[in-house]
Write a protein that binds this DNA or RNA. Structure first.
Length: 800
RNA sequence: GCCGCUGUGGCGGAACAGGCAGACGCAAGGGACUUAAAAUCCCUCGGUGGCAACACCGUACCGGUUCGAUUCCGGUCAGCGGCACCA
């Protein structure tokens, strides 16, 4: 009998579809398991070998949970709005909807060919109006709660995509997607107040089981800092408010710096004798792209304001005010007090402009460089703070500031509000209408979904308007409020919108009255285990946590966090150890692997390739090892005999059951497979396998290689299907061997081993050790100083 | 600059509440079967020395704790990833 994987895999995929083998049931009395993988963007290139790494891992976990009696929801869908599809549509004059349909069909074919146990009855698609109706609905709720607002602001503008980007989408000053230059542009944009949730997004990480690096990345990204805002009086009469994390160093503030965009500059126009120079500097700063601005980090530039000076509140010293682009308008108050003695940037600036440098924390050498490592130390040159520790000084100065009404404690975040508008066609229309009389008015819920209009051209316009802006009979509408003439919002939502809540839709995908029924959400949420890429840590993962918290606040969902566990897989690299890419020519196509080796081998190899959390290079020759393993499993059919576990194999089998089960939970798939290989080798040595042993082996292997195990199961005439069986129980008492091997050391070095009863006493072990010839010769003529005996493990004799 | 992670055979990788370093697999070499090849099966496979039993060295580098360190601690070097003028 030949292992014909092509035939077998096709056969069982059809059987599973037919039997709806992996459909989650709505029996809410059973224990549930919600396993989730990031739904893919259905690109024209099809599946990448990286996708199945994550999908196989959670498929294994989901299949095991089913065998353990859980009601499992393991769904799949399509995050199908987005630029590549739109660009392809523009280039080839095909409607993006048709492109999407084609790509989805291809992806689905590939996923089915890998035998994943997705519940295809719950498939979702973000571009389906029945789905994006609820994306729009959530937006309207955000608007109604004041968390969506329109604001004219400087935004990141990709010169090639002709589209606004969120801060998160700008990488090293260029567009994350196309690599083109990103410049600043003033535009009216819809914004979402994610900043309102900043503190909770940090705090609630304590309640979820995410891998540590995801937590730290999110915490760093949100960037909480504790300090104070302080008002400096100015000769212009206005207070200049600054933010600092080091109010204790106030006596060391020898000048101030405000951002080029700071509004006080315009207010002070008539007071500034060098206003023109300041404006020229502002224009220069605006012209610079983010890339240039960060490239020029070393050289500090700036202009001193002539005509206005500030007064340091602690000592009434008059200090100059500068404009410099090293101070950002978007953080704090857009103004700082400069303490050059204890800040590298201020130090550089002070040196460049020959400004005084006053040490206020003792310990450094400010002649040479800024002393920044000053969280501890003693205050000097600081009036009433002198002699205090930094910690005491922080408290004392804030108390003083509050008493004098010149400042107060303040917490700041690096996190910015989320720029939510895109000037593109292929996204969810924002369901808002602008009325001259009523302002921005939300559509009524009954008008959802607001569908994308059919258009001839999807090209973005050069003036930065969305393609939708040119469709007059769509744009012109009536105001839902006053029924007067009004215009629709023509921007669409970013790709992150649809993916911010998709897991909720899986709970009840066909609901027309709500994004999902309350009972379904209460039962299935939170997601028990979510696996995905590290690249989504500060984008999708943070955005979806924010939306979920909002939905929690308005009573839609009953958990404050969407995911109780988050893990992450390493990338699969090309055979040469570099990232797979078309330009490097090292891309592996899953279709080829399935064709040459079969889906079971492909799945097994992707799990065996290495530590799941780490990147690993692809190796075509190593796949053969996994294929050989399955061949051997198959060939066991020729030596099968009646019977249950044989005595000599019993403990190995129980140990393997335990190891495979534990390793799956710990995502140590590589060692789980190794354990099964070891057991197979052991069985192989006996030239026979009993039906009882085979049965267990097939169940253990089934989550990894579902097709071949079902086929053998059927061939052997076992009842039902493997997927309907129960995961084998571990009999702990039978995992133990009666006789164990103990290592014997002299001075910590291995000298010999001995076989002894597992429950031998320390004395027995020691006696047995001394009886060894190598021990006897090793201690001859020496004194025994110490004897260390670890029961069940080792004997170590220390001699001098 | 800051934060995080990683350094183990020819390769992917095991092992670490401190206790046999190199499980499992790949590649390589030798042998069996075969007219031959593929497939399969058996053996060898970190280094040095030795005919051998065996000995010594070996988990990036230097040091420490310990009877014993790949594992813990301190320092150095290298690589990867993220953030980056955030006051």
């Amino acid at each position: 009998m030949e292992y014909n994987f092509k035939e077998i895999e096709k056969k069982w995929q059809a059987v599973w579809d037919d039997e709806k083998a992996f459909a989650a049931t709505n029996d809410y009395s059973k224990p549930k398991f919600f396993g989730l993988v990031e739904f893919p963007y259905p690109s024209g290139q099809g599946l990448h070998v990286g996708h199945p790494r994550s999908y196989t891992a959670l498929d294994i976990i989901s299949r095991k949970k089913r065998l353990q009696g859980y009601n499992v929801l393991y769904p799949m869908g399509w995050d199908a709005f987005g630029l590549p599809t739109e660009n392809y549509a523009i280039k080839n004059h095909i409607h993006p909807e048709i492109v999407t349909e084609k790509n989805v069909a291809n992806f689905k074919r590939q996923l089915k060919a890998l035998g994943f146990s997705f519940d295809w009855d719950r498939e979702v698609n973000t571009t389906d109006p029945a789905y994006y109706k609820w994306t729009q609905w959530i937006f309207l709720q955000l608007f109604k709660k004041g968390l969506a607002y329109k604001k004219k602001m400087s935004v990141n503008w990709c010169t090639s995509c002709k589209c606004v980007l969120a801060n998160e989408e700008v990488v090293n000053g260029v567009c994350e997607r196309c690599g083109s230059e990103v410049i600043h542009k003033d535009k009216e944009q819809w914004m979402l107040k994610i900043t309102e949730y900043a503190q909770r997004l940090i705090d609630d990480l304590a309640d979820v089981n995410y891998i540590e690096r995801v937590k730290t990345s999110q915490i760093n990204w949100i960037g909480r800092s504790v300090g104070a805002e302080v008002d400096f009086a100015t000769t212009a009469g206005d207070n200049l408010r600054i933010y600092t994390t080091r109010p204790d160093t106030l006596f060391g503030a020898t000048y101030m710096v405000i951002s080029p965009e700071h509004p006080l500059i315009d207010k002070w126009k008539d007071l500034l004798s060098n206003f023109d120079e300041v404006m020229a500097y502002r224009a220069e700063a605006a012209r610079k792209s983010d890339f240039e601005r960060t490239e020029l980090v070393k050289d500090k530039t700036g202009v001193k304001l002539s005509g206005v000076t500030a007064i340091n509140p602690v000592n009434n010293t008059e200090i100059p005010v500068f404009v410099s682009d090293y101070v950002l308008m978007t953080y704090g108050t857009g103004a700082i007090m400069a303490v050059p003695a204890h800040d590298t940037r201020d130090y550089d600036f002070a040196k460049a402009f020959s400004l005084p440098i006053i040490e206020v924390v003792a310990g450094g050498d400010i002649e040479k460089e800024a002393f920044t490592d000053c969280q501890t130390g003693i205050m000097v040159n600081s009036g009433f703070l002198n002699g205090m520790s930094v910690e005491e000084a922080k408290k004392a100065i804030v108390q003083w500031l509050e008493k004098e009404k010149k400042g107060y404690p303040k917490v700041n975040f690096k996190l910015r509000d989320w720029v939510f508008s895109r000037q593109r066609y292929w996204g969810e229309p924002i369901p808002m209408v602008y009325c001259e009389k009523c302002g921005w008015v939300p559509l009524d819920d009954s008008e959802l979904p607001l569908k994308l209009p059919e258009v001839e051209h999807y090209e973005p316009t050069d003036n930065g308007e969305s393609p939708l802006a040119t469709i007059e009979d769509w744009v012109n509408t009536t105001c839902p409020h006053c029924k007067g003439p009004a215009k629709r919002e023509t921007d669409t939502m970013p790709q992150w919108a649809g993916s911010s809540w998709y897991f909720l839709r899986y709970c009840d995908p066909d609901n027309v009255n709500a994004l999902a029924a309350k009972e379904a959400l209460n039962y299935w949420m939170p997601v028990d285990w979510y696996n995905g890429g590290m690249e989504h840590t500060t984008l999708h993962l943070l955005y979806s946590r924010f939306w979920h918290k909002f939905l929690y606040d308005i009573g839609v969902v009953n958990t404050a966090e969407p995911y109780s566990k988050r893990t992450s897989h390493g990338m699969i690299l090309g055979e040469n150890g570099e990232k797979m890419s078309k330009s490097r020519g090292n891309v592996v196509n899953p279709d080829d692997i399935i064709n040459d080796y079969g889906a079971d081998t492909m799945r097994l190899y992707e799990m065996f390739i290495g530590d799941f959390e780490k990147a690993a290079p692809w190796s075509t020759s190593s796949i053969r090892g996994c294929k050989r393993f399955l061949d051997k499993i198959w060939n066991l059919q020729e030596i099968v005999v009646d019977g249950d576990y044989r005595k000599e194999l019993e403990s190995s089998i129980y140990k393997t059951i335990k190891k495979v089960g534990d390793d799956i939970e710990a995502m140590k798939f590589n060692t789980a497979i190794a354990a099964m290989m070891t057991l197979l080798n052991e069985i192989g040595e006996t030239k026979a396998i009993t039906r009882g042993e085979y049965r267990t082996l097939l169940i253990l292997l089934n989550p990894f290689a579902p097709h071949i195990t079902e086929e053998i199961w059927q061939n052997l005439g076992f009842e039902g299907r493997v997927y309907q069986q129960a995961w084998p129980e571990v009999d702990e008492s039978k995992c133990k061997d009666d006789v164990i091997e103990v290592i014997v050391q002299l001075n910590g070095k291995l000298r010999d081993k001995l076989k002894i009863a597992a429950d031998a006493s320390k004395d027995d072990m020691l006696k047995a050790a001394y009886a060894l010839e190598k021990v006897a010769s090793g201690i001859e003529g020496k004194t025994v100083v110490k004897e260390i005996v670890v029961p069940g493990r080792l004997v170590n004799i220390v001699v001098k």
